[in-house]
Nucleic acid binder design. Structure first.
Lengths: 310, 310
DNA sequence: TGCGTGCCATAGGGTTTCCCTATGGGACGG
DNA sequence: CCGTCCCATAGGGAAACCCTATGGCACGCA
């Protein structure tokens, strides 16, 4: 008994005709006749009553059909999985990464991926979350990690965890407690991610809160990199705000303090892909590796996926 | 890619040697080498690093192994099921039947089974439920239908439905209403199934009730067949009790009356098999046919399986 | 270092399965 | 009766699978 014989049998059973089965399988009627004949010989029973214009399945054919279908389907599913897997031996992985991904343990993500799948070409983008979201929505990049909120049109969004945003200063009196929007509006600020400007997700949250209170936030300085901003804060020139991952990072100056907002503010990190689109096996793998790395790094209470479950 | 190739691959992967794989598969080393070589050509990747005394699987081989195992196992399970099914084209079916099975629509069970599976040898036993239960527990018979209660040691019991037992008399005044145990103890009785005696399940229920009330049941007459008992009842010589199926049967004399017990009494019909034992496909089929026949015949309120469900 | 053992790859040849075209016989419908 | 549809078989070619025999390489031991 072989898979080829079972396929011929299933097609003939379904279509009630060897000739139609041959057309479906893109082979000859004589082949189908011979395959089924061999199957009948092995089973020592006839499978169809031949007569008139349509095949009548025998009792044993009725029983055989169920099992044959299961066997063939299982095999085909396995082969399909093999094909998907073999794409990890080539192809291109396009993925958007967090700009400050290193703070989340993602510094070596691409190295690890390349070590595992050396033949896959990798293209990572990650200037900022807005750009990543746009690239994914347009199909230029298959998936990526971003900070919410962004425009979600055309995207499938999967929040992974959230990171609390802190107010950072060298000059502010810590006894003043958590930071309010009113005080923020009065403070001298240095903000990083100058390119994205107010499209930056963290900034968007701040801006929205200020608007609700009829306040205006106007940074005195805008720089591109967070390191630059932190250096300025350390000199006392201005203050800034950043997520806990950066506050806890190795480059955070020892002379400055971080306090939470009076109304806690969070960056939510999410995995996105284009809605209803095919994701290549290599990009799927990259996304899995990124997700696992992130969730291993964060504290359990930050993991929004765990919170949903419990 | 074929099943034969996958089998060779899995054996080589597991044993780390083509030569050992060939021994396991009872084929030659050269065949295994060739099968795997063809697989490698189709996948366009090598699966093993050859060197020294042991094969080292490549990365792709590690991934392939999982899927290949699933595919081959699923196929083999299907083939095994086909083989089991084909046993319905031969083999022996051993089944215990109810002594008065005809009253439950089982008169033609064996005819129908034989018509469907003409090559299966059939051995039915059915002197009484006690004997059937013992034969099943001992393994002499694979499965059967019985009336409960019986000794259930070693048996897997599946109650199907229950049939109410009636008091049957030609002489009793119907206005006396349902039958009590006290009156029964005073009545002149003729009981059938003389061979099983008080081991008979219906009798056991009666005996147990009498004991609880400190009463004694002593039949004046014991006969083997229910027809004989009914004839004696019709002459007014004595009374008896029997399930509704018999009361409703074609041989029930028109001159006698059946009343229920004051405390309703039931025969429960159950399907049994030996606990944790293999049941052959033919006997399994016989059991299924018997069950379907019974449940089609009884009124819905008698079906204990339906009651459990609702 | 040399020798024996174990292992895989390949050659050459035979068998089985699968594929094809061609042909013939039977059933069905107009 | 004739045309159409359908399945079975013949004959032949290609591919997969099987075998024995042989050679090359790696490893372990004296």
């Amino acid at each position: 008994m072989t898979l080829t014989q079972l396929r011929a049998f299933l097609a003939a059973y379904e279509l009630g005709s060897f000739t139609a089965a041959a057309r479906k399988l893109e082979t000859s009627q004589a082949s189908v006749s011979e395959l089924i004949s061999r199957l009948e010989q092995e089973l020592n029973h006839s499978l169809f009553t031949r007569g008139g214009r349509r095949l009548i399945p025998t009792t044993i054919a009725v029983e055989l059909q169920v099992h044959a279908l299961q066997s063939v389907t299982s095999f085909d599913n396995g082969v399909e999985a093999l094909k998907s897997m073999s794409s990890l031996e080539g192809g291109v992985c396009t993925f958007g990464v967090l700009r400050y991904g290193a703070h989340y343990g993602l510094a070596d993500l691409v190295q690890r991926f390349h070590r595992r799948y050396p033949k896959v070409k990798v293209r990572l983008v990650g200037l900022n979350s807005v750009a990543v979201a746009e690239s994914v929505a347009s199909g230029e990049v298959e998936a990526g990690l971003i900070v919410l909120p962004v425009v979600e049109t055309g995207l499938q969004v999967r929040p992974l965890f959230r990171d609390e945003v802190y107010y950072i200063s060298a000059t502010r009196d810590p006894s003043r407690g958590p930071m309010t929007m009113e005080e923020l509006a009065e403070s001298k600020l240095v903000l990083y991610d100058a390119f994205a400007g107010w499209r930056d997700p963290t900034r968007r949250q701040i801006l929205e809160r200020a608007r609700l209170k009829g306040l205006k936030i106007d940074p005195a300085i805008e720089v591109e990199h967070v390191d630059t901003a932190l250096e300025l804060v350390a000199t006392g020139a201005a203050d800034t705000f950043a997520p806990q991952a950066i506050v806890n990072g190795p480059g955070f100056p020892k002379t400055i303090k971080a306090v939470p907002f009076a109304e806690p503010l969070y960056d939510t990190v999410a995995l996105i892909q284009r809605e209803a689109a095919y994701i290549s096996p290599s990009t799927r793998k990259m996304a899995q590796m990124a997700e696992r790395t992130l969730l291993a790094k964060v504290a359990p209470e930050q993991n929004v996926r765990r919170q949903i479950r419990s």
